[in-house]
Each structure stands twice: as C-alpha cells, then as structure tokens.
Write a protein that binds this DNA or RNA. Structure first.
Length: 240
DNA sequence: GCGACAG
DNA sequence: ATCTTGTCGC
C-alpha cells in the first residue's frame, strides 16, 4: 500500500490532490451492507504538545460487535486547513490501520469523501492510499448546501456543490435530529454508502464505528499526553 | 482583499 | 478539533 506524501506547503498539497483524485474508483457498488467488516477511524489532537493519536476500530458489520482495535500516536505533521484535512489525519490513521491483523473491510471516516472542493476529501484519499472501499460521514455540511430531508430516520436529500453537482447526501439517522452528511470515498456508490450509514446508526446520530474510534483515539491521546507530562521517574507527588 | 470553511 | 458544569430526558 502506498504511503501518504507529506507536502511541503498548501500549493503542493492541492496539486497532490489533483493528481491522486484520478485514482478514485467510482464504478463499484461496494461491499453489501451488513456483511463482512466495517472499520471506523478517527483522530484526536493535542496541538499544544504537538501530539496526534489515531484509532481504527473493526466491527462485525452484522452485529456491530468490536472485533479488533488499534491505535497509533505521532507528531502533528500538517496544520488544519479546510480542504486539506487528509494531510493532517492520514499519516497516523495509516499507522493504526497497518497494525490491524484483521481485514478492515469498509473504512468509515469522520469527514468527507467526494464532497470536497477538489472532490478528494479525507475518505477518498484514505481509500486510494489503502485500496480499501471507504466512505465519509461528516457532522457538518461544510460549504455545501442541501434542502432539509424529511424528519424520519432514513430520509435523505442531495448534498450539493455550488455548481449544483451532487456530491453526497444529507441523511437523517434519527427521527427529528440533524442529519449527517454522507459522501462516497473509494470503491463504493452513494446508495450503498447511505445504506451502510443507516445500518451503523441503530441508536445514535453518528455511526457506531466513528463513536468507537472517537472514544479510542481520545483515550490514546490522554495516555500519550500523560506519558509526556509525567515520564517515568517524574515527581510522584505532582510537585515540580 | 476578506471571511467562511470537514476535523 | 478543543476549551467546559450542570442539566434535561429516555
């Protein structure tokens, strides 16, 4: 599997996205929902200490039981720039994914796939780099627009770019609750991405996969941060 | 040019 | 993302 190149600046990052977007596969329906495995990935930051922690949690797609967990900790290698999120998140996420022993199956990202200024968001980027089918489920519409979907779980409406292009879907995962924003990453089509998202949300607005990954990367960050703040041998009573 | 802007 | 207590509700 390829490893992400860390660009020297924003212009280089955008050029890299323009280059890699051509590798996205969009003519596969993707794994059937409810079968195989689904892996949630997420990242937490401590910009103060320059630490980033990533988590990958593999779920059984049918039962949503946790099959395997992995974490990785690293240094923040890129600032947060809207549109360039992947460069900030992917290096550590890749490390976590690579330490898994089971097949990740479908990768579910906390962010966008094709719904992106250059149609190459986090989920698309991670999919291309790993070769795995991937989708993005975001909490906010970013710069895109949408008509509010019906109020019931399962209702959805198109997520539209400025030029009217459909880049994803606003999908209601709970009755009467703000929708999530689903977009295709790599080797999955939009209807399948929506179906997976619904199967992953039997109880909460966000997919179980991202909920697990979010909790795990925060835990990993706490532990990494604690190690930095109080290395072995540091004043045990807390005084300096 | 300025502000907005996934996480 | 992160800073942050209690509180309303199932």
């Amino acid at each position: 599997m390829k490893t992400i190149r860390t660009p020297a600046d924003e212009a280089e990052a955008r050029a890299l996205q323009d280059e890699l977007r051509g590798l996205v596969v969009r003519d596969e329906p993707g794994p059937p929902p409810g079968t195989g495995r689904v892996t949630g990935v997420d990242v937490a930051y401590d910009d103060e200490r320059d630490i980033v922690a990533a988590a990958a949690v593999v779920l059984d797609a049918a039962t949503l039981d946790v099959v395997e967990e992995a974490t990785a900790v690293g240094r923040v290698s890129f600032p947060y720039v809207p549109g360039l999120l992947a460069f900030r998140e992917i290096p550590t996420v890749l490390a976590a994914l690579e330490s898994l022993t089971s097949d990740p199956g479908l990768v579910v990202c906390d962010g966008y796939g094709l719904a992106h200024p250059r149609r190459f968001g986090l989920a698309a980027h991670l999919g291309v780099v790993t070769g795995l089918p991937s989708i993005g489920v975001a909490k906010n519409p970013f710069t895109f627009s949408y008509e509010p979907p019906g109020t019931r779980r399962g209702d959805s409406s198109p997520l539209l770019a400025d030029d009217g292009e459909e880049v994803g879907a606003a999908l209601r995962t709970r009755d009467g609750v703000k929708p999530v924003f689903v977009s295709v990453g790599h080797r999955v089509d939009l209807p399948t991405a929506r179906a997976h998202t619904l199967r992953l949300t039997p109880r909460y607005r966000l997919p179980e996969s991202t909920r697990h990954a979010d909790a795990l990367c925060r835990r990993a960050l706490r532990e990494a941060t604690a190690a930095t703040a109080a290395p072995p041998g540091a004043a045990p009573d807390g005084r300096e």
